[in-house]
Amino acid sequence: MSRRTTIPEQPVRSFSLGRCILYGCGAGLLGVAAMTVGEKIEQYFTGRPSSYVPGHTLERLLSLPARPDSERFGLNMAMHYGQGAAAAIIRALMSANGIRGPFSDFMFISIRLMIDQTLENWTGVGALPWTWPENEQIIDILHKAVFAFVTGYFTDRWLQG
């Protein structure tokens, strides 16, 4: 009779950091694309305008002169997709180290929200989330959940041990 241990086996690391970065960025781009489609569908039904907070944040990070929202689309998309790709490297590292599945995706929602809020509030662009109207908090969390689950799906599939 074999004895069962409560200590889980450590996954065998078979992925390089470079591979995690590459797959993480790819999965993050797909996650942001899915999130963006979801946002556009939601905006169609709710009438909520597009947010230019990512563009304002990148503008401040790069010390660029302030420009009106109508001239900020490129910055907005660069920050939106770039931040998603960079954040997804964390999810790829999770996948490569055996932290996979829906529970990991739920953890990653918080990580993505933390990254957004840290950058937005550090640059003085954002407001603390608990000061937002409740419906905006819910909408933001739902969109980040789409990002997290799509990103997690791809990193989990691409980086299976």
Rank of each mutant, 00 (worst) to 15 (best):
M1D: 14
M1T: 14
R4H: 14
T6R: 10
T6H: 12
Q10K: 14
Q10G: 07
Q10T: 14
P11L: 10
V12N: 12
R13G: 14
R13D: 15
F15W: 15
F15L: 07
G18S: 09
R19Q: 10
C25A: 15
G26Q: 05
G31S: 11
V32W: 02
M35I: 06
M35S: 12
R48E: 15
R48M: 15
Y52T: 02
P54T: 03
P54C: 02
G55W: 01
H56V: 01
H56Q: 09
T57R: 00
E59H: 04
R60A: 00
R60E: 00
P68G: 14
P68T: 12
D69M: 11
D69R: 10
F73M: 07
G74W: 05
L75Q: 02
A85D: 01
A85G: 10
A86G: 08
A86I: 08
A87P: 01
A88K: 00
A92K: 02
S95I: 08
N97G: 09
G98H: 13
I99G: 00
R100K: 13
R100V: 09
G101M: 09
D105F: 03
F106D: 08
F106Q: 11
M107A: 15
I109C: 12
I109Q: 07
L113A: 11
I115V: 15
D116I: 01
Q117D: 05
L119T: 03
E120T: 03
T123H: 03
G124W: 10
G124A: 10
G126P: 03
L128C: 12
T131H: 11
P133Y: 05
N135K: 13
I139E: 07
D140H: 07
V146N: 09
F147M: 09
F149Q: 06
T151I: 04
Y153I: 04
F154G: 00
F154C: 01
D156P: 04
Q160C: 06
Q160G: 12
G161K: 11
